[in-house]
Amino acid sequence: MRTFSYVRADDVDAALRAITDEPNAKFLGGGTNLVDLMREDIERPDTVVDITRLPLAEVEELPDGGVRIGALLRNSHLAAHPVIRSRYPMVAQAVLSGASGQLRNMATVGGNLMQRTRCLYFYDDAAACNKREPGSGCAAIGGFSRSHAVLGASASCAATHPSDLCVALAALDAIVELRSSRGTRRVPLVDFHRMPGDTPEIETVLADDELITAVELPPPPSGVSRYRKVRDRASYAFALVSVAAALDVQDGVVSSIRLALGGVGTKPWRAYQAERALLGAPATEESFRAAARAELADAVSLPHNEFKIRLAESTIVAVLRGMS
């Protein structure tokens, strides 16, 4: 790890000042991703601004029935929170399906949004990677591509976003609150992460001087919800495919549907096309399959990840079948 200076911010203004004043500075939350990447010499900040003691670790119930989650709330506390467990079980399930008990005790909600990909070539500084070293090429295309995205990939990058939580947040229409010295703005989670295009190194809309302060969830959708993760081990592995779904069926017809996918997209993937196909359709296996196919119609595979298209379809169908 390169040497860097360390600044601990005690309030949001101090954090914003530090990120503006210090050259090449980065915010440090739980450190579960950033510290690892710094040790691998992939992230090289000159200053880290420790924000773990900012007073942003509350879950607040909002008058409209939604909740506001402080960005520095740790994942384990989010998953254990009674309001989250009772009203947004999908969120708790997503968090608990990720990482390990130890990592969930460290990792923060804001940090979860900022996770970087687990692409093997991104992690290897001897390999070409447009995300790590813009313009260097992509060694994953033509290399080991089993973990890669089938949706949203470009010729520059097919790396997946590794978060479980973000998939649930995408399904729930979460809003990300961002603050900088210029003020506060609110960005839908589905617009927070960017498609790779020609600039895979730019992963989010977050500006260099902006801080994630909160994630807001609107009131939960009607019906039942579920997060289902499919992976190579029974626990402690990143998703091959994950599905966040909220489904309501009235008189045998889908009256409300939210669907998002993990492990298959270059960003947390809200499955709008599947939702459009399902809304108002009979809640049958045929509808579920047709909707899944609609979403995956544009999927493009690399040599080792073709199975994800089939797996995503069968997982979507299985999840919706189980909920209806």
Binding site: G31, S100, G101, Q102, L103, N105, M106
Partner: peptide
């Protein structure tokens, strides 16, 4: 040294963490 094995687990204020990823 990358939070993947758990051998470095300690308790911080009673909560388990991997001390290799903690500064």
């Amino acid at each position: 040294d990358q939070g993947a094995c758990g051998a470095c687990t300690v308790l911080a204020d009673g909560e388990r963490i991997v001390s290799c990823l903690a500064l």
